[in-house]
Every structure is written in structure tokens, then in C-alpha cells.
């Protein structure tokens, strides 16, 4: 009931300007009508952390402005709950499902089912093995290549480093790891012995686990030069271990993430991260907003038949290249939109 009210209210608000003598440029009313009353579902891994909260800001703004209904399902990191929520959404037949899959495979079959049911699907950030209508997110292979190149730059034997690096993966069935580790190994092999991986472990996105592993790795490899992490939220654990070992100057930590100020720029400023590859979640939020508008105006006749990829441009940040616009903050994003 409340939802209905807000929809109606939002409808009035958007309709109001139309009552004024706004000229029709041939598209402005038509496009608004195409968005109105539609339903968009958003199914992230979980709500309540920087990335998923950032992405939804654009959709929330648009839902208000254009009068479509936005439903958010929060499976709170549970793959099974997520799959169940997805199955329910298919039953409810929204116009678009925006999904952030926790693993490469988990939603593959559900995405197909949604497409068969005629629902457009947009995949955010973590590419599923099945193609949806749109993918918005980084190319994880390129991302890991950039990280590895950066660490080779700092630690390669030819550059005067020890040539020894360690890798901390997140969840192994996640595309970040699946494609990332291939990229790291390929890049290391390409370097022709300039660099070697002495430790390669997974910490399941858990900072305290990362801390425990890194502490021992640092002890086992006193001449370690670089560390490659796969997500800022986890990599702070590695940074703490490096700091405790008193090796902030000798061990370079290369991290990656969505570019949230607290996680990214703050950690570069205080020296936790040497280099940070950002896929700018704020920009992705805008991409998502626009893609949803586009899909609602021009629904795919055969969902999934013509997948479109919008790989996010990557941005390398370190102390030298960091500027005021390098990072975003959730507060301003939520207040002013992407």
C-alpha cells in the first residue's frame, strides 16, 4: 500500500511539469512515459557495503524522478538466499532485474530462466558465466594485469627489487579470482623471471583472515617486496600485518576496489596501499542508471540475445596521481546522486 502511494505520488510529481507548458522535443514525453510504472529489481550480494550502496543510488534517484518502482532484495551474502530471491523475482515478472552475482556460476541458470521469461537482466560488477543483456563492471583480467604490472614496476629484479611477491585472493569461485589469478600468473610468466610469486592464498574477503595469513607470509619471506590484494576491504588486513612487521617502506601493497574514499584514497594517503586500481563504483552507478533507463525505453525483444558489455575504465591511483576527484564518498553520492 505504501509502495503504491509513493508510486502514485511520484507519478504526480513527475506529471506536474508536464502540465506546465513544456515543449515536446519529440522524445521527452515519450521517454518519460516509457519509464513510468515499470518495475526494476535490484539483487546485490548484500546491501550495506560501499559498492552495492553506491550502485543503487542512481536507481533510487531515477525511481523517484521517473516513477518506476524499485524493489531491493538483500540476501546478505548468502548465495542460496540470493538464488531463491532471484527465483521469486522471476515469478513476480519485473521489467528489469539488476543482479550482482556472488559467484561465476551461481545465477547462471537463473539468468537464463529470467531471459526465457522475457525479463531483461543487467549484471553488475561480477560477470556471470551466462551473458545477460548488459554487463557493467571491470574486466577482471585487465584489472589484475594492471595490478601485477604495477607491482613488477616496484619490485622487479630489474628494477632493483627482490622480485618476490605474494598474492591474496578473495573467494575462489568469484570472477575476481577466477580470471584475476590467470592474469597474475600470465603477467608474471611474461616478465621472464623478473618476478616470482612466493605465496598465493585465499582469505575469503575477510580482513582478519588476511591479516593472519599475511603475518606469517611476511615472517616466512623476509625479503618479500610486494603484495597483491584483490579487494580493498580485505587488503586492510594485509596492510595491518605489514605495518606491524615494520615493513611499510619495503613491502608494497597493490590493492583494488570501487574507489570509496575511506577504503581507497585514505589508505593511499596513510601509506597502506602503494598502488590502487579503482573501477570507480560511482561511475558504474551512473552507468547502471543509464542502462536501466535505456532498457526500459527499449526492452530487448529477445532478452539475452544481444549482450552488451560496458567494461568500466580502470583508474590507477597512487600518491603521485591522486587528486581530489580520485575517490568518491558514499555520503555525497547518496545526497547528490552519481
Amino acid at each position: 500500500m505504501r509502495k503504491l502511494l509513493t508510486t502514485v505520488l511520484a507519478g504526480f510529481l513527475t506529471a506536474a511539469p508536464a502540465l506546465a507548458e513544456k515543449p515536446d522535443d519529440g522524445l521527452v514525453f515519450e521517454s518519460a512515459a516509457a519509464l513510468k510504472g515499470k518495475t526494476v529489481a535490484y539483487l546485490p550480494i548484500a546491501m550495506g557495503f560501499d559498492l552495492t550502496e553506491a550502485w543503487v543510488t542512481g536507481l533510487k534517484k531515477d525511481a523517484e524522478t521517473w516513477g518506476y518502482e524499485l524493489t531491493i532484495r538483500d540476501p546478505n551474502w548468502s548465495v542460496d538466499a540470493g538464488a531463491q530471491a532471484f527465483a521469486q523475482l522471476i515469478q513476480e515478472q519485473p521489467d528489469v532485474i539488476v543482479v550482482h552475482p556472488p559467484e561465476i556460476q551461481a545465477y547462471a541458470r537463473l539468468i537464463q530462466q529470467a531471459e526465457r521469461a522475457g525479463i531483461a537482466v543487467v549484471v553488475v560488477s561480477l560477470k556471470a558465466s551466462t551473458n545477460a543483456d548488459y554487463f557493467i563492471g571491470p574486466d577482471w583480467y585487465d584489472m589484475a594485469v594492471a595490478q601485477t604490472k604495477s607491482v613488477i614496476e616496484m619490485c622487479g629484479k630489474s628494477k632493483g627489487g627482490s622480485g618476490k611477491i605474494a598474492v591474496m585472493q578473495g573467494v575462489l569461485t568469484n570472477p575476481t579470482s577466477q580470471y584475476g589469478i590467470q592474469a597474475i600468473e600470465a603477467t608474471v610468466a611474461e616478465s621472464g623471471g623478473d618476478i616470482e610469486i612466493v605465496s598465493n592464498q585465499a582469505a575469503d574477503w575477510d580482513a582478519s583472515k588476511a591479516h593472519a595469513i599475511a603475518t606469517t607470509v611476511l615472517q616466512a619471506n623476509p625479503d618479500l617486496c610486494g603484495y597483491v590484494g584483490m579487494w580493498d576491504n580485505m587488503d586492510v588486513g594485509i596492510a595491518a600485518a605489514i605495518r606491524e612487521a615494520g615493513k611499510q617502506d619495503t613491502v608494497k601493497l597493490v590493492s583494488s576496489g570501487g574507489g570509496n574514499r575511506d577504503s581507497a584514497c585514505a589508505n593511499i594517503e596513510n601509506g597502506n596501499f602503494a598502488t590502487y586500481i579503482s573501477y570507480d563504483a560511482a561511475a558504474q552507478a551512473r552507468d547502471l542508471m543509464m542502462v536501466v533507463r535505456s532498457v526500459l525505453q527499449n526492452p530487448p525483444e529477445e532478452p539475452g540475445a544481444h549482450p552488451v558489455a560496458l567494461y568500466t575504465p580502470l583508474r590507477s591511483i597512487d600518491k603521485a596521481t591522486m587528486h581530489s576527484g580520485s575517490c568518491w564518498s558514499l555520503d555525497t553520492l547518496q545526497a547528490y546522486g552519481p
Partner: peptide, 9 residues
């Protein structure tokens, strides 16, 4: 030690 708490633990 770490300077942050990940509540997912």
C-alpha cells in the same frame, strides 16, 4: 591491530 572491523566475521 587491523584498525577496522569486518562484521561479516
Amino acid at each position: 591491530t587491523i584498525g577496522s572491523v569486518e562484521t561479516r566475521i
